[in-house]
Design a protein around this nucleic acid. Structure first.
Lengths: 225, 225
DNA sequence: GTCTATACGGAGATAGAC
DNA sequence: GTCTATCTCCGTATAGAC
């Protein structure tokens, strides 16, 4: 932080600030959907000025995503340090993660965009900078929690269960039976934890094959056809 | 099919054909990543000719996605007609769906793109044409299989569990512990069905809170740090 | 550091010949 | 039906003044 600002001018429209302002844009519209002019507009400077801080659009995007991820995932990392009951730590992670996804929709969308990226270099770069640590930590936790299961499948299932309700929100809004409650992070987390522990059979009546019978097939809250 | 082709010229580069050829493009690169010129190139005609069949790019995209969805989901719909054991039907769906996703990567990516679309009109249109039927059918099946549970959460979890291994494949390739086996639709389907039935406790030892102890925390196949 | 100006290609869409 | 040609606007990126 030596040669960054020459005079004492208070407007320090620094690199970091541009990243934080552009992240929501990329989250909403994706890499192709955001132009350098768009970024410049929200950052409050002209498009040409961006090239003072970033060599090209790719660099800006990569840094914005990496920065957002680091910032949002920071608090979650503490969960993996502490020892203690693995199940409890897993449960904490699920709840914290669900709350994070509910609160930071932009962050969640950024992940979605990354998963769809078809640029190999960007993908590799983001995998290294952004996903590797979290994924490894979760895998280790998985080994503790469920020693008999494949940790990879465990982790994918866990994350998928938490994320998917949010990922599908955009389209479920237009589908029958939509309720606000299905976006509640606490409810989602409880549901996921319950599913991971016991599956659908709430009380160990697993692998029963009998059908409930046609008389009670519509007992639950089916609010639309 | 009356006034479509005037002469007996065999080259019937009809509307449908353009849709089928453009779908893979949209699947790979998304709406913004595909130009009318790109579509024209794979369809074997010039960009201007596309406007004979489609009023604009939006229409082309919408029809391509709808068409692809109808085509790929057709075989799955039969599963919901037949009566019989709901669990068996659910299991069949999971296996068929997993096989479909494994075989038709383009189709899977199209779904992902739709979920990220930020155009309200497109979203609404696709929800109506594309997702509504399948979603309703699954919800009815959910009510039969697990009368005590919320069908909406049930369905989201089920689909998420099946789809997420495929959605994350692009980035998991670069992560430690990646194995081909994790993309096998049969393995994924078995895993999902098992999870839905019993959770992680394979034999009804649910909600046990004891830790496995530090001695065996690394017993599984951790192939990388 | 940030600006204005501009280069240059590619985007969607249309006009009109054949 | 499909073409060529073209319009207009927007994309990334650079040059050079201040």
């Amino acid at each position: 932080m030596g040669s960054q600002m020459i005079k004492g001018i208070p407007k320090r429209k620094t690199r970091e600030e541009i990243l934080e302002l552009s992240a929501p844009l990329f989250a909403q519209y994706g890499y192709d959907g955001v132009s350098m002019r768009d970024v410049a507009a929200v950052a409050g400077l002209t498009q040409a000025a961006l090239y003072y801080y970033f060599s090209d659009k790719d660099q800006l995007y990569l840094d914005a995503v990496g920065c957002a991820f680091e910032e949002k995932m920071e608090p979650l990392k503490a969960l993996f340090d502490g020892a203690g009951n693995p199940w409890d730590r897993l449960e904490s992670f699920v709840f914290q993660f669900a709350r994070l996804l509910a609160k930071e929709e932009n962050f969640r969308r950024l992940i979605q965009w990354v998963l769809l990226d078809s640029d190999e270099r960007r993908l590799q770069s983001l995998a290294d900078q952004v996903f590797r640590d979290l994924f490894s930590a979760l895998r280790h936790l998985a080994v503790e929690v469920a020693p008999g299961h494949d940790p990879q499948s465990f982790v994918i299932s866990l994350i998928g269960l938490v994320i998917y309700p949010f990922e599908t929100r955009s389209v479920r809004r237009f589908l029958p039976g939509y309720q606000r409650q299905h976006e509640d992070p606490e409810a989602i987390a409880r549901h996921v934890v319950g599913l991971m522990r016991n599956g659908l059979g709430t009380n160990s009546e697993g692998k029963s094959q009998q059908t409930p019978g046609p008389g009670q097939t519509c007992g639950a809250d089916v609010s639309a056809p």
